[in-house]
Every structure is written in structure tokens, then in C-alpha cells.
């Protein structure tokens, strides 16, 4: 998938994955795609809730060996 920015939040605990994601998202234009990589299971639900609230669209979401990857299109 084409991504415009990658946020690598591996090893970071709440709230840092979302703080980083939010910061990068602010720099994107509407329609651009961010890839977020996190190893914090707690932030997975939070990320989905935040994206929904902020009108971003989660295009895809994967989990492999405790590494969560999200592709999110800025709304």
C-alpha cells in the first residue's frame, strides 16, 4: 500500500503511539495515508476510537507476532 508517512512507535507505551500519530497526521493533507506500527496492545483500541472520532479512515489493520500495523487515510 502506498503510504505518505510511516510512524514507528514500536516499544512505546500509551499515550506515546497516539501522540506521535496525531503529530504526523497534522502534517498530512486530506486523503494521504499514514502507516502506524505499534507494539502496545492497549493502544490498538484507542487508535481505532481516535481515528473514528477524528474522521480518519482505517484502510487496513494487521497483527503479526505482537506487532500491530495500521494504514490510515486522513479525513
Amino acid at each position: 500500500m502506498k503510504t505518505d508517512v510511516v510512524v514507528d512507535a514500536k516499544g512505546l507505551a500509551c499515550p506515546m503511539p497516539l501522540v506521535r500519530a496525531k503529530k504526523e497526521m497534522d502534517r498530512l493533507n486530506s486523503g494521504e495515508v499514514m502507516k502506524l506500527i505499534s507494539t502496545d496492545p492497549g493502544s490498538v483500541n484507542d487508535f481505532a476510537s481516535w481515528a473514528k472520532r477524528a474522521n480518519h479512515e482505517i484502510l487496513d489493520q494487521q497483527e503479526e507476532d505482537g506487532v500491530y500495523t495500521f494504514y490510515v487515510k486522513k479525513g
Binding site: L18, V19, K22, D46, S49, W50, R53, A54
Partner: peptide, 8 residues
């Protein structure tokens, strides 16, 4: 109030 609401 979820913490991520404070981000915005």
C-alpha cells in the same frame, strides 16, 4: 474522557 480527546 479518553486521553486521545486531549490530543485534539
Amino acid at each position: 474522557i479518553p486521553y486521545f480527546e486531549f490530543l485534539d
